[in-house]
Design a protein around this nucleic acid. Structure first.
Length: 488
RNA sequence: GGCCCCUUCGUCUAGUGGUUAGGACGCCAGGUUCUCAUCCUGGUAACACGGGUUCGAUUCCCGUAGGGGUCACCA
């Protein structure tokens, strides 16, 4: 059955409600790829007026990192991605999985396996040597009821395996990849219940998706080859499977699956550097997704994304996670911000500066230069610390030492005539100084270049008006005076 | 290696059986009252290859190559 995706009412053909989920395992930080998956599921559900649920897949006790579930939820909330349920923990549903596993054993969809890890390893080694795909050889599937009972009575450790049928074609209509087909002979008898009694991903995932009435599963392409196993499970249970959509992977610059080692992959790391939630969301969803053809929009907020999101517009090929565009996007969002909001965001990065007014001024003149908030602390020492530079730097390319000194003296004299009040706004300062330059027919660069270097000590910096505004009249004149001494 | 997926500028991508193959980022150049940044204008740059099908393929089909994913009592 094909679901009608164009419905706006939130229900597909057959009256089935749209429900998606995000199902992270709490094994560490939230990965940018994970965020993208969460985002797509969220956007799709909200676009369809459906529900977006959270499930914590904590069936691997060994890999679990305490507290990471809370962290993941926190970040998602911070980014505006809200769930319609309180999280479901798989570790609390062991009995349910057990019950369904028993059912599978009864209908021959699964079987007990008593093979030791040693035997399995040996078997795989032989298979490898014979250039065969490593695959369980179904030894325990042939055990008689009596043998199984005896082993169980002897308290032999066991797992439960999926009984994959022979010579069967398994196919489905993937929402992104269209028809995908596998032969069951290539599929391993996957472990469903581990010897510690916990289910594996495959079992728990299918049972939970069914019980949570998940209608659409959007997940990474790395799951494509396990989908046949899941489909087999749905069939064994006689359940209707959800619609699958396997989205492309985020890639390293060398095109391998995005990993640590080649850069940051933790969402928190990006947040810490001062990437804004808006740009992270914008960037992550538009990597691999475009709205209807013809649109040339690059900047989207969450609300717009919800309005426009469409699974059909997700791309098939992997995408390199390239920071250049993120930087541009983030800079764009920073430039659009209200100054007061930006100041608040910048404060944690300017702990060294106690003067609140000074912080506000610094943020104002740096706003258009920032790519990320953390950049605010770079190259601003000259605004509140003593400066040091070579005298030659003061001399403009079209000028010389004598002229420069002369101009600095003139500038100082002129600045002396200004009031403290003139220094309360960059615009006033700029207007007064430019008027003075024009009136006396001085060269703009002849005056402004030395003035700026005298104030900043830098080759590149904000304009002299902005720096003077930050420094105030007294400090400004003091620095121009210093520059004169340096030239003598 | 088996199986599966993918392939348009450097990157993210739009697109069509006949287009000057479009946009964005980056880069380059010019302009915007000094430098940087911003902003504006312009420029650079792509249909992996080989066969078909067709009057005509970047577009449809087949193959090749390349890349990727997956082959656990991890998810």
């Amino acid at each position: 059955m094909k679901l009608n995706m164009s419905a706006n009412g939130g229900s597909a053909a057959g009256g089935k409600k749209i429900i998606t989920r995000f199902a992270p395992s709490p094994t560490g930080y939230l990965h940018v790829g994970g965020l993208r998956t969460a985002l797509y599921n969220f956007l799709f559900a909200k676009n369809q007026g459906g529900k977006f649920l959270l499930r914590i897949e904590d069936t691997d006790q060994a890999r679990e990192v305490k507290g990471s579930d809370k962290q993941i939820i926190d970040i998602l909330n911070k980014l505006g991605i809200k769930f319609d349920n309180s999280p479901i923990y798989q570790s609390k549903r062991l009995k349910t999985y057990q019950k369904y596993a028993d059912q599978l054993i009864k209908n021959n969809g699964a079987y007990f396996c008593f093979c030791t890890p040693e035997r399995l390893e040996e078997m795989r080694e032989t298979q490898k040597q014979n250039k065969q795909a490593p695959k369980y050889d179904k030894t325990c599937c042939k055990l008689s009821d009596q043998e199984i009972k005896d082993n169980l009575d002897k308290k032999m450790p066991f797992v439960i395996r999926l009984n994959v049928p022979k010579d069967k074609t398994i196919k489905w209509d993937d929402l992104i990849r269209e028809e995908v087909e596998f032969n069951s002979n290539d599929i391993d008898d996957q472990v469903l219940i581990k010897s510690d009694g916990f289910p594996t991903y495959h079992l728990a995932n299918v049972i939970d998706d069914h019980e949570m009435e998940i209608s659409h599963v959007l997940r990474g392409e790395e799951w494509l080859s396990s989908t046949p196993k899941h489909l087999l499970l749905y069939e064994a249970f006689d359940w209707e499977p959800p619609q699958f959509a396997h989205q492309s992977l985020l890639l390293n610059p060398d095109k391998s699956k995005l990993s640590k080692r080649q850069g940051d992959v933790s969402v928190q790391d990006y947040l810490d550097k001062g990437y804004l939630p808006e740009s992270l969301i914008n960037f992550l969803t538009t990597i691999g997704w475009t709205e209807e053809s013809g649109s040339e929009q690059e900047v989207y907020n969450l609300k717009q994304l919800i309005e426009k999101f469409d699974i059909k517009r997700l791309g098939k090929s992997g995408a390199i996670f390239n920071l250049e565009k993120l930087d541009w996007l983030n800079g764009w969002y920073i430039r659009q911000m209200k100054l007061d909001d930006l100041i608040k965001l910048c404060q944690p990065y300017l702990k060294e500066i106690k003067d609140k007014e000074l912080i506000a001024k610094i943020v104002k003149i740096e706003q258009e230069r920032l790519k990320k908030i953390a950049d605010i602390s770079e190259n601003i020492d000259f605004l509140y610390k003593d400066i040091k530079y070579k005298a030659e730097l003061l001399i403009w390319k079209k000028s010389n030492r004598e002229e420069t000194l002369e101009n600095l003296v003139k500038t100082e004299d002129f600045l002396m005539t200004l009031t403290d009040n003139d220094f309360t706004q960059t615009e006033t300062l700029e207007k007064k100084i430019i008027t003075w330059i024009k009136k006396n027919d001085y060269g703009v660069g002849d005056i402004l270049w030395p003035m700026r270097v005298a104030l900043s000590g830098e080759q590149n910096s904000p304009s002299p008006f902005e720096i003077a505004w930050v420094l105030g009249k007294e400090k400004t004149i003091e620095r121009i005076n210093q520059a004169q001494k340096l030239l003598k």
